[in-house]
Design a protein around this nucleic acid. Structure first.
Lengths: 247, 247
DNA sequence: AGGCATCATATGTCCGGACATATATCAGTC
DNA sequence: GACTGATATATGTCCGGACATATGATGCCT
């Protein structure tokens, strides 16, 4: 077995197996010898082999199926980086007490390009909200945080059928009210300049830079639940994120 | 025990413990009864209790320390969302064969505001690179992908001391050459408009929108290894990311 | 009071055995 | 040939026991 000082027995076994996988003795896609055989070979109990295999399964090097065997999934542990969010609210990057003041709410039948963007057939009905997001009280004196357009699948239109001020995110209201849970969000960030019309609403100069952040919220089965388009004035907002190496 | 059909015994135990934690019978921060006591109470073996506890540890509800006990860490499983990257290269969002053509490389002593931004004392020496990132061959005909300025800690300046074309990311070269490993990256995205000078280099109209993406690469101990500032023309680039619910 | 050795305790590791259950294969039947 | 059932096989679960080791508390000594 691989020399390994006085580490736990199962870690020694795991290391040995990892070496064999790395050197190609057990190619990707192949089945490992059975736990019983490995236990006999290493002179340890089957539980110790299982502990070793469990360790490597945690590293996504192996996978097991009852009645079949243990399959080699990867050559070596992939060093992945990840970005963690406590909740989807963290995507917003602004205070949770920001208000969404809807100025227009209308039911529309989407057509052509817009239907494609929403991933549905033309003619389907969606609710379109237009409004400004702003901080309450004196904090909002600098002007709105962003100009937000939201498209909501007709099934969930009830959450915002008439214009009003929302203190919770639309997707969160849909989750609570209809029992759907958002499993995936796609976010798209691009740079643009504001038009004269947008500038007046946002209280910035026409032609000044802005971030256009589009978010698509998907429920189970990758169905689009709602889509929001947020236009953030450049000086007032920037998007920050931290990714860390795993472990 | 909690009724649970015919699930595995250890899952029944885990569910029961989870219920007790959720209802406050075992408050956050308190120690669970010992494995031996739980085994006796549930009428199962200690290994089964350990399997149940291991399950809850995987959900970050519990933590254990040898010689101490098993501590309650959380009230209920926190639904967190993840954004995973295969490698840091994925932060770039452009093809991996893009080239970084450095036009200027000079050693500078950072002062005042810049030193603060780099998180070091004024007077420290850093290498400043300026250049364009572009796709090779006909793919690059539309113009450069971005205008990139990189600041490299003086210790690692050797990787890019003289202007040349880089086909690998600077941080990756530092990782290989000096054996440091990047453990954390902070990314900052803001909107801006390009100046006349930048416009000429990027071959876009002056005043057109652009994404300014600043990335700070940290090594062990949160020390800044290098910082890059990328100016992406709006029409040619946008930043996309997907976050998923765990499990 | 402060430092040090001792001891009880709780989790970590390991063993050998047993049965449960999902899966693929193969023989047999219609 | 297609479906069905039996069977071998591999992992999954569970047991009772044993020793290892990190930790906190206790009590002694200076």
């Amino acid at each position: 077995m691989t020399s390994n000082g006085s580490a736990s027995l199962y870690l020694q076994v795991a290391r040995t197996l990892q070496d064999r996988i790395a050197t190609g003795a057990h190619p990707i896609g192949s089945l490992l010898p059975t736990e019983h055989m490995l236990a006999e070979e290493f002179g340890v109990s089957r539980q110790t082999v299982r502990q070793a295999i469990g360790h490597l399964r945690g590293m996504k090097l192996l996978s097991a199926r009852k009645g079949v065997g243990t399959r080699v999934e990867a050559n070596r542990p992939q060093t992945s980086y990840y970005h963690t969010l406590q909740s989807l609210q963290d995507l917003f990057q602004f205070a949770s007490d920001a208000q969404y003041r809807v100025t227009s709410a209308e039911m529309v039948s989407v057509t052509g390009k817009e239907a494609e963007e929403l991933g549905c057939r033309p003619g389907r009905r969606w609710l379109r909200l237009v409004g400004l997001r702003e901080l309450p009280g004196p904090l909002g004196a600098d002007g709105p945080l962003c100009l937000t357009t939201v498209m909501i699948d007709g099934r969930y239109a009830d959450v915002a059928a008439t214009p009003r001020v929302h203190t919770r995110a639309i997707f969160a209201q849909i989750e609570d009210r209809f029992g759907v849970s958002i499993t995936e969000v796609h976010q798209d960030i691009e740079a643009t300049v504001v038009t004269a019309e947008q500038a007046a609403l946002l209280r910035v100069e026409p032609g000044s830079p802005a971030l256009l952040i589009t978010r698509r919220y998907f429920g189970s089965g990758r169905t689009l639940v709602d889509l929001s388009r947020n236009l953030h004035p450049g000086g007032r907002f920037r998007y920050a994120m931290t990714v860390r190496r795993e472990e």
